[in-house]
């Protein structure tokens, strides 16, 4: 009988004071000022610690992080093809499992973490991610969501919200709202289609302690887990770099983003406001929505209202508050 593989057992962080002081995603990278995905990377790295292997598909977090012959990571990392992060992670995990089984590797299974962009996770990289989730590899797949194919100059992806101005969805006479489609629901895609997965959660850079604890919980689970992390991108969404955390917080206050955990079929919700603010308040912070009319904003509000009440989210949600017209 193969002996059970020992994995990490990472402690929950109880307060800001207990957040590790050590950095593993170090200063010295070319991400834009105030980059949300860089902040995500820093927090995830802190949570996972040095006994980790990080990898990810082409995107800002690989292209802007690696400069000529240097990188900001203190742990082993790998830049995969944009389509195949899930497959590469599966291979790394399977190789460790075999080495451990044959007694050729004496340590614990390291944390294997994929940091994929929205494109590299649920669009061009979807099949490899889904394959990993389906086969049940002991890997944490994180989708850092900056809501566009950012690295190539902000093109629309399935995570881009309705109404956003991107280089592939410029608003004009024929299509005044810019992006006409509503986004894919990434965590529901994983939950709905992958029986080997037992832990899926959403997190936001606005709540770093919660984010760190979700990463640790996900890593402690045997088998695949998925985290969807809201990571505002000042360049692509067109807002002031100082507002990254403010914008992320506003997304939660307006229902544009919902923090939740799904553990073996049970949902729990975090940071739900007593009363939601109108989505307009979130949208007006970003130039990518500047061209929208009241009718477009009403369409977005209706979509968010429906999502907050969706039967797929089987927990009583806070009653929507009154909103100004």
């Amino acid at each position: 009988m193969a002996k059970a593989v020992e994995t990490q057992n990472l402690e929950a962080v109880k307060s800001i004071r207990r957040v590790p002081q050590e950095e593993y995603y170090l200063p010295g990278h070319r991400t834009c000022q105030g980059c949300g995905p860089a902040l995500t990377y820093k927090l995830v790295s802190k949570a996972a610690g040095p006994d980790s292997i990080f990898l990810g598909p082409t995107g800002c977090m690989y292209v802007a992080n690696t400069s000529y012959l240097c990188s900001p990571w203190a742990y082993p990392w790998m830049h995969t093809q944009i389509t195949n992060a899930g497959a590469v992670a599966s291979g790394i995990e399977a190789a460790y499992q075999v080495l451990i089984r044959k007694g050729k590797y004496k340590g614990k299974l390291p944390n294997i973490v994929v940091m994929g962009g929205d494109g590299g996770s649920i669009d061009i990289g979807l099949q490899a991610m889904s394959g990993l989730m389906y086969r049940g590899h002991d890997v944490l797949f994180i989708m850092y969501d900056n809501e566009s194919y950012a690295n190539t100059g902000i093109q629309t992806s399935p995570a881009t919200p309705y109404g956003a101005n991107t280089t592939f969805t410029p608003p004009g006479e024929a299509i005044p709202e810019g992006k006409v489609l509503f986004p894919k629901d990434a965590p529901q895609l994983v939950i709905g289609g992958h029986p080997a997965v037992h832990y899926v959660a959403t997190a936001s850079v606005a709540y770093p302690v919660d984010l760190i604890n979700k990463v640790r919980k996900a890593l402690n689970y045997k088998g695949p887990s998925f985290l969807h992390i809201h990571s505002p991108c000042p360049k692509g969404w067109m807002f002031d770099a100082a507002k990254t955390v403010e914008v992320a917080k506003l997304a939660i206050e307006t229902g544009m983003w919902v923090n939740y955990e799904w553990e073996k079929g049970e949902y729990t919700y975090q940071h739900t406001p007593k009363e939601y603010k109108p989505v307009k308040e979130y949208m007006k912070t970003q130039q990518r929505f500047a061209h929208l009319t009241d009718a477009h904003i009403a369409k977005m509000q209706a979509f968010i209202d429906a999502r907050l009440k969706a039967p797929g989210i089987p927990v009583a949600l806070p009653v929507l508050g009154p909103r100004e017209e």
Binding site: P27, Q33, G34, C35, P208, P234, A242
Partner: peptide
């Protein structure tokens, strides 16, 4: 917590925050 470039650290002995001038990009988060 919130600096994307990890430019603020607590000096526990001195009990004060230390800023990293060589890497701070000035985003003002």
């Amino acid at each position: 917590l919130f600096c994307p470039d990890a430019c603020w650290h607590l000096d526990e002995k001195e009990e004060r925050m230390v800023w990293n001038a060589d890497f701070c990009k000035g985003c003002l988060i």
